[in-house]
Design a protein around this nucleic acid. Structure first.
Length: 279
DNA sequence: AAGAACAACAACCGCAGCACA
DNA sequence: ATGTGCTGCGGTTGTTGTTCT
Protein backbone atom coordinates (compact mmCIF):
# COMPACT_ATOMS: atom_id res chain seq x y z
CA UNK A 1 0.00 0.00 0.00
CA UNK A 2 0.92 3.59 -0.35
CA UNK A 3 2.47 3.26 -3.75
CA UNK A 4 -0.48 4.53 -5.70
CA UNK A 5 -3.33 2.67 -7.19
CA UNK A 6 -2.28 -0.33 -9.18
CA UNK A 7 -4.01 -0.75 -12.52
CA UNK A 8 -6.65 -3.42 -12.73
CA UNK A 9 -4.34 -5.49 -14.88
CA UNK A 10 -1.55 -5.18 -17.38
CA UNK A 11 -3.53 -4.83 -20.58
CA UNK A 12 -0.57 -5.89 -22.67
CA UNK A 13 -0.25 -9.21 -20.89
CA UNK A 14 -3.87 -10.27 -20.68
CA UNK A 15 -5.92 -11.95 -23.34
CA UNK A 16 -9.06 -10.17 -24.46
CA UNK A 17 -12.07 -10.98 -26.54
CA UNK A 18 -14.21 -14.08 -26.58
CA UNK A 19 -13.46 -16.88 -24.16
CA UNK A 20 -12.25 -20.21 -25.44
CA UNK A 21 -13.57 -23.52 -24.14
CA UNK A 22 -10.27 -24.23 -22.44
CA UNK A 23 -10.41 -20.93 -20.62
CA UNK A 24 -13.96 -21.62 -19.51
CA UNK A 25 -12.89 -25.00 -18.26
CA UNK A 26 -9.98 -23.59 -16.31
CA UNK A 27 -12.17 -20.97 -14.71
CA UNK A 28 -14.91 -23.42 -13.82
CA UNK A 29 -12.59 -25.99 -12.36
CA UNK A 30 -10.67 -23.41 -10.39
CA UNK A 31 -13.81 -21.92 -8.90
CA UNK A 32 -15.08 -25.39 -8.10
CA UNK A 33 -11.91 -26.14 -6.25
CA UNK A 34 -11.08 -22.84 -4.63
CA UNK A 35 -14.01 -20.52 -4.98
CA UNK A 36 -13.74 -16.90 -6.02
CA UNK A 37 -12.68 -15.00 -2.95
CA UNK A 38 -10.31 -12.76 -4.84
CA UNK A 39 -11.02 -12.05 -8.46
CA UNK A 40 -7.85 -10.09 -8.88
CA UNK A 41 -5.57 -12.98 -8.04
CA UNK A 42 -7.84 -15.64 -9.48
CA UNK A 43 -6.60 -15.53 -13.09
CA UNK A 44 -3.01 -16.05 -12.05
CA UNK A 45 -3.89 -18.89 -9.69
CA UNK A 46 -6.12 -20.48 -12.28
CA UNK A 47 -3.52 -20.17 -14.98
CA UNK A 48 -5.58 -17.77 -17.04
CA UNK A 49 -4.18 -14.90 -19.04
CA UNK A 50 -7.21 -12.81 -18.26
CA UNK A 51 -8.08 -9.80 -16.19
CA UNK A 52 -9.85 -10.57 -12.92
CA UNK A 53 -12.76 -8.45 -13.99
CA UNK A 54 -13.08 -10.44 -17.15
CA UNK A 55 -13.12 -13.69 -15.18
CA UNK A 56 -15.76 -12.36 -12.85
CA UNK A 57 -17.92 -11.22 -15.72
CA UNK A 58 -17.55 -14.50 -17.55
CA UNK A 59 -18.50 -16.47 -14.45
CA UNK A 60 -21.42 -14.30 -13.45
CA UNK A 61 -22.93 -13.84 -16.88
CA UNK A 62 -22.25 -17.15 -18.50
CA UNK A 63 -20.66 -19.97 -16.54
CA UNK A 64 -22.44 -19.76 -13.22
CA UNK A 65 -24.65 -22.83 -12.96
CA UNK A 66 -27.81 -21.00 -11.99
CA UNK A 67 -27.77 -18.70 -14.97
CA UNK A 68 -31.03 -19.20 -16.78
CA UNK A 69 -30.39 -19.11 -20.49
CA UNK A 70 -32.71 -18.93 -23.42
CA UNK A 71 -35.22 -16.40 -24.56
CA UNK A 72 -37.03 -14.19 -22.14
CA UNK A 73 -40.65 -15.10 -21.65
CA UNK A 74 -43.34 -12.51 -22.24
CA UNK A 75 -43.89 -12.40 -18.50
CA UNK A 76 -40.25 -11.75 -17.84
CA UNK A 77 -40.18 -8.98 -20.41
CA UNK A 78 -43.24 -7.42 -18.91
CA UNK A 79 -41.65 -7.64 -15.48
CA UNK A 80 -38.50 -5.95 -16.72
CA UNK A 81 -40.48 -3.12 -18.22
CA UNK A 82 -42.39 -2.58 -15.03
CA UNK A 83 -39.31 -2.78 -12.85
CA UNK A 84 -37.52 -0.40 -15.16
CA UNK A 85 -40.29 2.08 -14.61
CA UNK A 86 -39.68 2.07 -10.89
CA UNK A 87 -35.92 1.47 -10.74
CA UNK A 88 -34.67 3.04 -13.94
CA UNK A 89 -31.39 1.69 -15.27
CA UNK A 90 -30.58 -0.15 -12.07
CA UNK A 91 -29.99 -3.37 -13.92
CA UNK A 92 -28.56 -5.26 -11.00
CA UNK A 93 -31.61 -4.38 -8.94
CA UNK A 94 -33.90 -5.54 -11.70
CA UNK A 95 -31.82 -8.68 -12.13
CA UNK A 96 -32.14 -9.47 -8.44
CA UNK A 97 -35.90 -9.73 -8.95
CA UNK A 98 -35.53 -12.11 -11.86
CA UNK A 99 -33.95 -15.35 -10.67
CA UNK A 100 -31.37 -16.71 -13.04
CA UNK A 101 -31.13 -13.57 -15.14
CA UNK A 102 -28.06 -11.38 -15.09
CA UNK A 103 -27.92 -7.61 -15.19
CA UNK A 104 -25.96 -7.75 -18.43
CA UNK A 105 -28.55 -9.96 -20.07
CA UNK A 106 -31.41 -7.78 -18.92
CA UNK A 107 -29.60 -4.69 -20.08
CA UNK A 108 -29.10 -6.25 -23.50
CA UNK A 109 -32.72 -7.28 -23.76
CA UNK A 110 -33.78 -3.81 -22.80
CA UNK A 111 -31.65 -2.14 -25.42
CA UNK A 112 -32.37 -4.60 -28.20
CA UNK A 113 -36.04 -5.43 -27.67
CA UNK A 114 -37.93 -3.63 -25.00
CA UNK A 115 -36.87 -0.05 -25.61
CA UNK A 116 -37.87 -0.29 -29.23
CA UNK A 117 -41.10 -2.01 -28.38
CA UNK A 118 -41.98 0.68 -25.88
CA UNK A 119 -41.20 3.50 -28.27
CA UNK A 120 -43.24 1.91 -31.05
CA UNK A 121 -46.07 1.27 -28.60
CA UNK A 122 -45.91 4.88 -27.49
CA UNK A 123 -45.95 6.06 -31.09
CA UNK A 124 -48.92 3.88 -31.87
CA UNK A 125 -50.66 5.07 -28.78
CA UNK A 126 -50.02 8.70 -29.62
CA UNK A 127 -51.58 8.12 -32.99
CA UNK A 128 -54.45 6.29 -31.34
CA UNK A 129 -54.77 9.06 -28.79
CA UNK A 130 -54.92 11.72 -31.47
CA UNK A 131 -57.56 9.75 -33.29
CA UNK A 132 -59.55 9.10 -30.16
CA UNK A 133 -59.26 12.74 -29.08
CA UNK A 134 -60.93 13.77 -32.29
CA UNK A 135 -63.69 11.31 -31.77
CA UNK A 136 -63.96 12.33 -28.15
CA UNK A 137 -64.27 15.96 -29.11
CA UNK A 138 -66.92 15.09 -31.57
CA UNK A 139 -68.89 13.02 -29.14
CA UNK A 140 -68.22 15.49 -26.31
CA UNK A 141 -68.06 12.66 -23.89
CA UNK A 142 -68.16 13.45 -20.20
CA UNK A 143 -65.55 10.86 -19.40
CA UNK A 144 -62.21 12.30 -18.31
CA UNK A 145 -59.24 11.39 -20.39
CA UNK A 146 -56.12 10.63 -18.43
CA UNK A 147 -53.61 13.45 -18.21
CA UNK A 148 -50.75 10.99 -17.97
CA UNK A 149 -49.10 9.46 -20.93
CA UNK A 150 -50.37 5.99 -21.62
CA UNK A 151 -48.17 3.01 -22.19
CA UNK A 152 -48.99 -0.40 -23.40
CA UNK A 153 -47.07 -3.48 -22.40
CA UNK A 154 -47.73 -6.72 -24.14
CA UNK A 155 -51.44 -6.39 -23.97
CA UNK A 156 -51.79 -4.34 -20.82
CA UNK A 157 -52.35 -0.62 -20.72
CA UNK A 158 -51.19 1.59 -17.92
CA UNK A 159 -52.93 4.91 -17.93
CA UNK A 160 -52.43 6.32 -14.47
CA UNK A 161 -49.83 6.42 -11.74
CA UNK A 162 -52.07 4.40 -9.43
CA UNK A 163 -52.58 1.70 -11.99
CA UNK A 164 -48.89 1.84 -12.62
CA UNK A 165 -48.08 1.18 -8.98
CA UNK A 166 -50.66 -1.55 -8.84
CA UNK A 167 -49.09 -3.23 -11.81
CA UNK A 168 -45.66 -2.99 -10.25
CA UNK A 169 -47.04 -4.64 -7.13
CA UNK A 170 -48.53 -7.35 -9.28
CA UNK A 171 -45.20 -7.77 -10.94
CA UNK A 172 -43.55 -8.28 -7.56
CA UNK A 173 -46.13 -10.86 -6.62
CA UNK A 174 -45.39 -12.61 -9.85
CA UNK A 175 -41.67 -12.42 -9.13
CA UNK A 176 -42.24 -13.83 -5.67
CA UNK A 177 -43.98 -16.74 -7.28
CA UNK A 178 -40.95 -17.17 -9.49
CA UNK A 179 -38.67 -17.17 -6.49
CA UNK A 180 -40.78 -19.66 -4.60
CA UNK A 181 -40.69 -22.12 -7.42
CA UNK A 182 -37.26 -21.93 -8.89
CA UNK A 183 -37.45 -25.64 -9.34
CA UNK A 184 -40.24 -25.17 -11.80
CA UNK A 185 -38.66 -22.51 -13.91
CA UNK A 186 -39.08 -24.38 -17.12
CA UNK A 187 -41.29 -22.45 -19.44
CA UNK A 188 -43.99 -24.39 -21.16
CA UNK A 189 -43.59 -22.37 -24.33
CA UNK A 190 -39.79 -22.21 -24.12
CA UNK A 191 -38.61 -25.77 -24.54
CA UNK A 192 -34.97 -24.68 -24.79
CA UNK A 193 -35.09 -23.65 -21.15
CA UNK A 194 -35.83 -27.20 -20.18
CA UNK A 195 -32.25 -27.99 -20.96
CA UNK A 196 -31.50 -26.73 -17.48
CA UNK A 197 -33.04 -29.16 -15.00
CA UNK A 198 -33.23 -26.94 -11.93
CA UNK A 199 -35.06 -29.55 -9.94
CA UNK A 200 -32.81 -32.46 -10.79
CA UNK A 201 -29.64 -30.57 -10.12
CA UNK A 202 -30.75 -28.47 -7.25
CA UNK A 203 -28.28 -30.09 -4.91
CA UNK A 204 -25.31 -29.63 -7.10
CA UNK A 205 -26.27 -26.05 -7.87
CA UNK A 206 -26.69 -25.07 -4.29
CA UNK A 207 -23.50 -26.98 -3.72
CA UNK A 208 -21.76 -24.79 -6.25
CA UNK A 209 -23.41 -21.44 -5.86
CA UNK A 210 -25.91 -21.51 -3.08
CA UNK A 211 -25.84 -21.36 0.69
CA UNK A 212 -22.76 -23.54 0.86
CA UNK A 213 -19.80 -21.27 0.72
CA UNK A 214 -16.91 -21.88 -1.56
CA UNK A 215 -14.78 -22.19 1.52
CA UNK A 216 -16.73 -25.33 2.29
CA UNK A 217 -16.43 -26.32 -1.29
CA UNK A 218 -12.71 -25.98 -1.15
CA UNK A 219 -12.61 -28.64 1.52
CA UNK A 220 -15.29 -30.82 0.16
CA UNK A 221 -15.30 -30.73 -3.60
CA UNK A 222 -12.20 -32.73 -4.34
CA UNK A 223 -12.92 -35.44 -1.82
CA UNK A 224 -16.60 -35.54 -2.62
CA UNK A 225 -15.81 -35.74 -6.29
CA UNK A 226 -14.21 -39.07 -5.69
CA UNK A 227 -17.40 -40.51 -4.29
CA UNK A 228 -19.46 -42.20 -6.91
CA UNK A 229 -22.74 -40.38 -6.36
CA UNK A 230 -21.13 -36.99 -6.30
CA UNK A 231 -19.14 -37.95 -9.33
CA UNK A 232 -22.37 -38.69 -11.11
CA UNK A 233 -23.74 -35.33 -10.18
CA UNK A 234 -20.62 -33.56 -11.34
CA UNK A 235 -20.76 -35.48 -14.56
CA UNK A 236 -24.39 -34.54 -14.99
CA UNK A 237 -23.63 -30.90 -14.37
CA UNK A 238 -20.79 -30.87 -16.84
CA UNK A 239 -23.04 -32.47 -19.42
CA UNK A 240 -25.50 -29.62 -18.95
CA UNK A 241 -22.73 -27.11 -19.20
CA UNK A 242 -21.43 -28.71 -22.36
CA UNK A 243 -24.89 -28.58 -23.78
CA UNK A 244 -25.16 -24.92 -22.79
CA UNK A 245 -21.84 -24.15 -24.40
CA UNK A 246 -22.77 -26.08 -27.50
CA UNK A 247 -19.99 -28.58 -27.00
CA UNK A 248 -22.16 -31.64 -27.11
CA UNK A 249 -22.52 -31.59 -30.86
CA UNK A 250 -18.81 -31.09 -31.39
CA UNK A 251 -18.13 -33.92 -29.05
CA UNK A 252 -20.48 -36.22 -30.88
CA UNK A 253 -19.15 -35.19 -34.23
CA UNK A 254 -15.62 -35.84 -33.14
CA UNK A 255 -16.59 -39.24 -31.83
CA UNK A 256 -18.19 -40.04 -35.13
CA UNK A 257 -15.37 -38.67 -37.24
CA UNK A 258 -12.54 -39.86 -35.06
CA UNK A 259 -10.63 -37.04 -33.44
CA UNK A 260 -7.37 -36.01 -35.00
CA UNK A 261 -6.99 -32.44 -33.86
CA UNK A 262 -5.27 -32.42 -30.47
CA UNK A 263 -6.30 -28.93 -29.49
CA UNK A 264 -9.94 -29.53 -30.26
CA UNK A 265 -10.02 -32.84 -28.49
CA UNK A 266 -8.51 -31.29 -25.38
CA UNK A 267 -11.54 -29.07 -25.07
CA UNK A 268 -14.16 -31.34 -26.50
CA UNK A 269 -15.30 -32.59 -23.13
CA UNK A 270 -15.43 -30.30 -20.16
CA UNK A 271 -15.67 -33.26 -17.83
CA UNK A 272 -12.57 -34.94 -19.22
CA UNK A 273 -10.72 -31.67 -19.05
CA UNK A 274 -11.89 -31.11 -15.52
CA UNK A 275 -10.72 -34.55 -14.48
CA UNK A 276 -7.33 -33.84 -15.96
CA UNK A 277 -7.10 -30.52 -14.19
CA UNK A 278 -7.98 -31.76 -10.74
CA UNK A 279 -5.65 -34.72 -10.91
C1' DA B 1 -24.76 -15.63 -54.68
C1' DA B 2 -22.82 -11.57 -52.67
C1' DG B 3 -22.77 -7.56 -50.17
C1' DA B 4 -25.15 -4.33 -47.04
C1' DA B 5 -27.82 -3.43 -43.19
C1' DC B 6 -29.55 -4.70 -39.02
C1' DA B 7 -30.03 -7.36 -34.68
C1' DA B 8 -28.33 -9.81 -30.78
C1' DC B 9 -25.27 -10.51 -27.31
C1' DA B 10 -20.65 -11.09 -25.18
C1' DA B 11 -17.14 -8.48 -23.41
C1' DC B 12 -14.59 -4.24 -22.12
C1' DC B 13 -14.00 0.21 -19.77
C1' DG B 14 -14.29 3.58 -16.32
C1' DC B 15 -16.38 5.07 -12.23
C1' DA B 16 -18.42 4.72 -7.51
C1' DG B 17 -18.84 2.69 -3.22
C1' DC B 18 -17.24 -0.19 0.31
C1' DA B 19 -13.90 -2.48 3.33
C1' DC B 20 -9.79 -2.45 5.46
C1' DA B 21 -5.16 -1.17 7.00
C1' DA C 1 -9.68 10.08 9.52
C1' DT C 2 -7.60 8.93 5.35
C1' DG C 3 -5.85 6.52 1.45
C1' DT C 4 -5.74 2.30 -1.20
C1' DG C 5 -7.42 -1.80 -3.32
C1' DC C 6 -11.19 -4.58 -4.74
C1' DT C 7 -15.66 -5.46 -6.35
C1' DG C 8 -19.77 -4.41 -8.61
C1' DC C 9 -22.40 -1.55 -11.68
C1' DG C 10 -23.84 0.78 -15.81
C1' DG C 11 -22.59 2.53 -20.31
C1' DT C 12 -20.58 1.38 -24.43
C1' DT C 13 -18.21 -1.13 -28.00
C1' DG C 14 -16.99 -5.09 -30.85
C1' DT C 15 -18.07 -9.31 -32.95
C1' DT C 16 -20.99 -12.61 -34.87
C1' DG C 17 -25.19 -14.12 -36.89
C1' DT C 18 -29.29 -13.18 -39.61
C1' DT C 19 -32.16 -10.92 -42.85
C1' DC C 20 -32.81 -8.04 -46.72
C1' DT C 21 -31.76 -6.14 -51.30
Amino acid sequence: MGKGRAPCCDKTKVKRGPWSQDEDLKLISFIHKSGHENWRSLPKQAGLLRCGKSCRLRWINYLRPDVKRGNFSAEEEETIIKLHQSFGNKWSKIASKLPGRTDNEIKNVWHTHLKKRLSSDTTNLNADEAASKDSLNEAETSQESSPNASMSFAGSNISSREEDDAQISQAFEHIQTYSDFTGMLQEVDKPELQEIPFDLDHDIWSFIDGSDSFQQLENSWSSRATQESEGDEIEKWFKHLESELGLEENDNQQHEQGTTDGEESSSSSLLEGYKLLIH
